Simulated assay, not measured.
Amino acid sequence: MATLSGDVGGIWMDNPVMLAAGILGTTGASLKRAVLSGAGAVVTKSVGVAEREGHRGPAVVQVEGGLLNAMGLPNPSYRHFQEEIDIGRDGGAPVIASIFGSSPAEFVEVARGLDADGFELNLSCPHAERYGAEIGCEVYNVEAITRAVKESSSVPVWVKLTPNVAEISALGLAAERGGADAIVAINTLRAMAIDVESCRPILGNRFGGLSGPAIKPVAVKCVYDLAGAVKIPVIGVGGVSSWEDACEMIIAGARGVQVGTALGNAEGYGIFRSISEGLSIYLDRKDMALQELVGAARRFP
């Protein structure tokens, strides 16, 4: 079968299919299980300087086309998270720590306090005041935070971008100028659900972020645009639930893909191996190497 191993954003992986941040990465056991189930790498739940409880419930609701969530970045703080990363590493694949903060200094503090194989900067959560997209929608902030973490760290730094802007390529270029090793696109779309009987928003936070199949076309377009604008690798995430979805992301320009909401489907953890095996069979059928597939959509007028 076609080989899928290679470098993705400065990190060597047996295959380019990863666990996305925020789904199962709250414990070392879930990280390790994802690796043992075939994930080429895993990304943790986002952690910050201080412990956070997150938003009041309901925090997750199923809607047509996916899930709507407003967790609010609950986490135990980086000071109580290293053990989970270490347990995750026992699986034998890279563990990337997703980190957040309200300023470059906070991002740097978290990065210096954790030992991980890489960092994914959460500059894209759509529903946490003073964090995520609230600061990550500004080009200056993206560049400054990326540079601060990169200069204080010896491991690869990825930047996860928000799609809730007019032009995502400008954010990608800012991350590249700041020294990012890769861009992760995309986080969830700002969205809302209302109960018609009570006439009240369903989520405790009133609005949240939409993930799942409904956002895949948006993610594919963002990956395509970013891959055409930057020289560093792009990692696609958003609605990936099959090898065909992963293939579409790669053809658009992604060097790797992340899987999140689809872990709630019938396959569960088995989705990692299912996607990587499907990709390998596809490449054999096409008589192509994985790298040849990256950005193939741009070769057509």
Results as ranks from 00 to 15, higher is better:
A2I: 02
A2D: 04
T3E: 12
S5K: 14
P16D: 10
M18Q: 15
M18C: 15
L19D: 15
A21Q: 04
I23G: 06
L24I: 07
T27E: 07
L31S: 06
R33V: 04
L36C: 10
S37I: 08
G40R: 11
G40Q: 11
V43I: 05
S46V: 02
V47Y: 02
R52Q: 10
E53P: 00
H55Q: 04
P58I: 02
Q62K: 11
V63Y: 06
P74T: 04
Q82N: 13
E83W: 03
D86A: 14
D86K: 15
I87M: 12
R89T: 09
G92N: 13
P94Q: 11
S98T: 01
S103F: 05
P104D: 03
F107N: 05
R112T: 07
D117L: 11
G118D: 08
G118T: 00
E120Y: 09
L121A: 03
L123T: 08
H127K: 03
Y131M: 12
G136N: 04
E138T: 03
Y140F: 05
V142H: 05
A144K: 05
I145Y: 00
I145Q: 05
A148G: 09
V149N: 05
V149D: 07
S152V: 12
W158K: 09
V159R: 11
N164V: 00
E167N: 07
E167L: 02
S169N: 02
E176M: 10
E176T: 04
R177S: 14
G179N: 00
V184N: 04
T188R: 11
T188P: 08
L189D: 04
L189W: 08
I194S: 13
V196N: 00
C199D: 08
L203C: 14
R206K: 15
R206C: 12
F207R: 09
G208T: 09
G209D: 07
S211Q: 03
G212V: 02
A214K: 07
K216I: 10
K216H: 07
P217E: 09
P217T: 13
V218W: 00
A219Y: 11
C222I: 00
Y224N: 09
V230G: 03
I235P: 10
V237G: 08
G239Q: 12
V240G: 14
S241L: 06
S241D: 14
W243Y: 15
A262G: 12
L263M: 12
L263S: 11
L263P: 09
N265V: 01
A266N: 03
E267P: 02
E267I: 06
G268W: 03
G270D: 05
G270M: 04
I271M: 06
F272I: 04
R273K: 11
R273L: 06
R273T: 13
S274D: 10
I275P: 11
I275L: 01
S276P: 08
E277D: 14
L279W: 10
D284S: 13
R285G: 12
A289K: 15
